[in-house]
Simulated scan of single mutants.
Amino acid sequence: MYTENALAHVIQDESVSGAGKSVEQIAAAAREGMEKNRICLIRDFALDPDLYLAFLGEFGEPLMNYSSLSELAKTDPHPQINRVKYKKKAEGAQSVHYVAGGLRPHSARSWRSPRPSHFAMLMVEPGWREVPAGERGESVVVSWHDLFVRLAERDGEVFQEHFDRLSATPITFEANNVREELSSLPLLYPLADARGPYDVGVRLKQDLRDKIVGIKDRIPDFEAYRKSLDYLLDASADEQFFACFPLERGDLLLLDNHRFAHGRLKIVGEYVVDDEARSNNRELWSVTVH
């Protein structure tokens, strides 16, 4: 029901085949797609951590994953790969990568300086597909440029006021479980290779609405800023702006982390068969690249 979004069609129609190709060949084809669209889908990529990281190494340096930098349980296939898989909650803190609920569109390592250049997702196991559409963990991406162009057309001066405020106000916030060098950029920041006035980088944390309350003394005209942030968060979570589609086994989605938000729709985490609880085996490997 979300594939009517033009970007969703472009991503799928202009995908690159990885079948029978070397990492270098796949990266060369993907680089062309990235240059054109800033996002590229590779089909039939090998489910191999080393090949995955070798491919991403063609675009930058894969960063250490969340678990390796935090106190959370470490169950990932490699120190640079985040395993995103449903896991029934036990005692203590739990990574957002284990929950069944949807993930709001957000930027990878939104707090980090320097800003990571790319984000990648490799689908290892799509999980249950017999559940209704919208509950299969369909991947979501939001093009910031496309969103801002549409908001400018729809809301005019109201949009421009929020856009200008979020572009002019430096803000520093921390991760929940990871300690890294922190950025002091505005949420909307300029890009050296911008293709227009709304082609900007965005760093957006899923829980930023709550996070800024703890730093409100450092934000000038906080109430006005909060309204602008609410405007951005509400717009980015509006499904009419989603490019949304299910990833199949071996699908690798590479995106420009400055220009795209990523998220997913909810999944059915578990159900009971013959009095036995079964967990969804959906598994995705994500990597942030600097």
Rank of each mutant, 00 (worst) to 15 (best):
H258T: 04
D238H: 09
R179C: 12
A46V: 12
E91K: 15
S236N: 10
E270I: 08
C40W: 01
V23W: 00
A73F: 12
P197N: 02
V124N: 04
Y189K: 08
Q80C: 07
F119L: 11
N37H: 15
I212G: 04
G137Y: 07
E276P: 05
E125I: 08
D207P: 04
E138W: 08
N177S: 14
Y98E: 15
E71V: 11
L229E: 00
R38I: 04
I267M: 14
L187Y: 08
L72D: 08
L204K: 07
S279K: 12
S184N: 15
M34W: 01
H162F: 03
E71P: 04
F241E: 01
P126C: 09
A54E: 06
W128M: 09
T172F: 03
Q12W: 03
L69S: 08
K211T: 10
A192N: 15
E157Y: 07
V289Q: 04
W285K: 07
P197R: 00
R115C: 10
L204G: 03
L72Q: 06
K216G: 08
L232E: 02
S139E: 13
R150N: 07
L233G: 00
V200Y: 11
K216I: 04
K211P: 05
A120R: 06
W285H: 09
K227R: 13
Y66C: 14
N37P: 02
S143Q: 05
F222T: 02
G127E: 06
L122G: 00
W285I: 13
S279T: 14
R154W: 01
D48R: 00
S110Y: 06
V23M: 03
E248D: 15
S17N: 14
R43H: 11
E223W: 02
T169C: 05
S110P: 14
L47G: 11
H262R: 06
G201T: 05
G102P: 10
G18I: 00
P62Q: 10
G250N: 08
E130G: 11
P220D: 01
L208A: 11
D217K: 10
R104N: 14
M34D: 03
V289F: 08
P77L: 12
D230K: 04
K211H: 09
R209E: 12
E32N: 10
L122A: 02
W144Q: 03
R104S: 15
F159T: 02
P190D: 06
H290K: 13
A152D: 13
F242Q: 02
L182T: 12
A46L: 08
A237L: 06
S15G: 05
V289S: 05
V200R: 15
R104T: 14
A120Y: 05
T169Q: 02
L187S: 01
E153Q: 14
K21E: 05
D210G: 09
S110H: 14
L284V: 13
I11V: 15
S279L: 12
P126W: 04
R209T: 09
S95R: 05
L56E: 01
E135T: 15
P77A: 02
L147E: 01
F245Q: 05
I26R: 00
E58R: 14
F222M: 03
S70W: 11
K85A: 13
D50V: 07
A90D: 10
H118S: 09
V158K: 15
